[in-house]
Amino acid sequence: MSLVNLAAVCSHLQNASKARLGLTSIPVSKLHVALMLGLQKQGFISSVTLGGPAPPKPVLLQKPPKYRGTPEEREAKNLAEQLREARKLERRQKKGYLLNARQLEKVAWGRAPEWSYKEIVPANPGQRRLWVGLKYWKNEPVLNKMNLVSKPTRRIWVNSDDLAKITRGRESAFVKGLTRTGECMFVTTDKGIMEARECVERKLGGMVLCRVI
């Protein structure tokens, strides 16, 4: 869990929002994927897509395949399957197997789609990027600020009591309260990365990652 990379991601998203970019990419890691899904759940970003060095085609963003389940579950399952399938593909390619177009599509989407995309996740993990769609409303970015709370050299763990105080706007465990309008804080817990208020609801503690406004 590299917080150095996460810090870079935070700054990058801030800068991309200030530059009014519609789509930007960040390096792929399990932490980044989970955090981006958390951001998407909170409505800060519009889409999270696994792709290559070139941005995925807009059609992918406009019309995602129909899956059952809640949008979050769907997105998580989709990404997890994409990763798994990509790894499988990699292994098969190492062994010298060749895949046909249909199989490639299956690798990309976790199942055979009704329609075909040319876009696929590169076999080389170093070439994979996570493409994040940024949101704007009334000419203002939805994600304005994103800062690390835990630092690479000083990580901060909080329990649910601390989080309860923090979400009520009080300082606890050397973490300032969430006093600004619409401020969110993400915490990595045993049950995954989630927002501080959700942690309080589920009585979970964990390591504080970042705060987002």
Partner: peptide
């Protein structure tokens, strides 16, 4: 230039 909670919720689709 204060942001209203309603506007923030609307922007985030909440």
């Amino acid at each position: 230039a204060q942001k209203l909670p309603e506007d923030i919720a609307r922007a985030r689709g909440k």
